[in-house]
Design a protein around this nucleic acid. Structure first.
Lengths: 204, 204
DNA sequence: GTAGAGTGCAAGCAAGCACTTGCTTCACTT
DNA sequence: AAGTGAAGCAAGTGCTTGCTTGCACTCTAC
């Protein structure tokens, strides 16, 4: 990576860390520059605006998210395995950036430019998941007496609360590897036991 | 209510509304005063500080929360009914103040005084619920193969995501009455079907 | 070996912030 | 009628914020 590109990356890294904990408005350009180890002027020269930093950050997040999806979610007929992989992916991504996406989803409400930089994100994700769940209901892989939108909401609640508790409220610890975390496994099993058709449930 | 007490209440109402959407730092004393229909100076005369407003708000929230708990959660041997009542109470309280408590939980991370004003809140709630669930596991009213802390986390995820989606992300609509909301009923049933011992589950 | 791009440094500007001061007005009690 | 407490209004203080300007330095490419 060229020196110039590296400077930009370091600024984005710093901005991501700070905004994840303080939010967009409370993260000053001075603080970003200091953490990145560059002069504040350099930040403005490379990104024009504070909003420009946010926009670049949003694009980088979208790129990484797409990469994770391609890597982790293999097409499979096993609905349970697919959903578990999806949960892991969501959580891994959210933990990796320290809950940045969730924090910014909060800020989007009050700061319009944050909403723009984040795109349809959450809403689109939810709708897409609901559609997937509906298909699985139709082929009998999920119980059919619950609205798929409600089921998607429950799934979203599972993954987001896992992150919020660890990164926002500071309860519990982040697992070393989400792929082997026992708590996540149990958490998912609770969801699955509620969502599966009766013959597929656990034998608790 | 005396005119003076009414002024203070109106200031707290305005602060609650604004902080619920913008967060603590982004809510200016000017904006609070304007929305309350009082002069900004009046705010400082009644509450000393912006922090003083926050503190009074925290105390009022705690008082109301205690009131709701006394009103709604009747002691019962029916674990399902108790948990459903508890979920309704949590959600009703959170929706009533437009997600203020959750928004402030976010801010507590970056603004120390917010943490002080909110107290142990979330962490204590979680621990208390886990303890209740553990007792119910022991008497066979809940499946025993899942860590009660994980189960509490799932429950918390259910209620908090219900509120976050409606108040923070602006998805879906707030129900007119939480006590009769069909979606909440289904959402809780998903949780319960996952958490109940096998003989008590739904027949989906 | 020189031009140009990238960065640092010092200084500053306008706006917005929490908060203060001094004075006036009004309603209510005695 | 006088006194008192709550509220409004106008103005201002010191600080922080996003952002700008001007200048000097150091690499790298040709």
């Amino acid at each position: 990576m060229s020196a110039a590109a590296d400077t930009a990356e370091r600024i984005l890294d710093a901005a991501a860390e700070l905004m994840a904990t303080r939010g967009y408005a409370a993260t000053t350009t001075r603080a970003i520059a200091q953490r990145a180890g560059v002069n504040e002027v350099t930040l403005f020269r490379r990104f024009e605006n504070k909003q420009g930093v946010l926009k670049a950050l949003g694009e980088r997040m979208a790129r990484r998210q797409a990469g994770r999806a391609a890597e982790h979610v293999a097409p499979s007929d096993d609905a349970r395995a697919t959903l578990l992989a999806f949960a892991r992916m969501e959580i891994e991504g959210a933990l990796e950036d320290d809950g940045l996406a969730m924090r910014l989803a909060y800020d989007a409400q009050s700061v319009p430019e944050v909403g723009e930089a984040m795109g349809a994100g959450a809403g689109a994700n939810l709708a897409g998941l609901a559609e997937y769940l509906r298909e699985r209901q139709e082929v009998g892989q999920l119980r059919a007496d619950v609205d798929p939108a409600v089921m998607a909401e429950a799934f979203f609640g599972l993954t987001s609360s896992y992150v919020i508790m660890r990164k926002v409220l500071g309860l519990g610890e982040s697992p070393v590897d989400v792929r082997t975390d026992e708590g996540l496994e149990q958490l998912f099993d609770l969801f699955w036991s509620g969502a599966a058709p009766k013959e597929a449930r656990h034998d608790g």
